[in-house]
């Protein structure tokens, strides 16, 4: 699946959380700070393979760690899709 981050997001970082304001929807979200790493990695102008994203975060990991990270990142992607902070890209 290809995903793309929506444009013009504003973020404010705190220790454990990141506050994300989406001017497209007017919504403000309080998210786990790890989500920000995923958001930062995603471009707003070019669709990105979610598998590629996972691979980036899973470098040098053992198989059990990869499984755990894969599930964790997939959860984040699902959550971000639901919040409309990223969109699934289709031609």
């Amino acid at each position: 699946m290809k995903i793309i981050k929506v444009g013009n997001l504003l973020t404010k970082h705190y220790d454990e959380h990141v506050i994300v304001f989406d001017p497209n929807t007017g919504q403000t979200h309080c998210l786990d700070s790890n989500v920000n790493e995923v958001l930062n990695h995603l471009p707003t102008n070019k669709p990105y393979q979610s598998s590629q994203l996972k691979q980036f975060f899973m470098q040098d990991c053992a198989n059990d760690e990869k499984t755990m990270l894969n599930d964790y990142i997939q959860d984040m992607i699902d959550n971000l899709l639901q919040l409309k902070l990223i969109r699934a890209y289709s031609l």
Binding site: L10, K12, Y14, D15, E16, I19, F21, P23, T28, C30
Partner: peptide, 26 residues
């Protein structure tokens, strides 16, 4: 209170945060 929780608490109690949009967030 951690700052993120306080941030959301302030928004909940704002009359015009959604009207101010980006200026409100800042």
């Amino acid at each position: 209170t951690d700052k993120a929780t306080a941030f959301m608490g302030v928004i909940e109690n704002s009359f015009n945060y959604s009207i101010l949009a980006e200026a409100g967030f800042k």
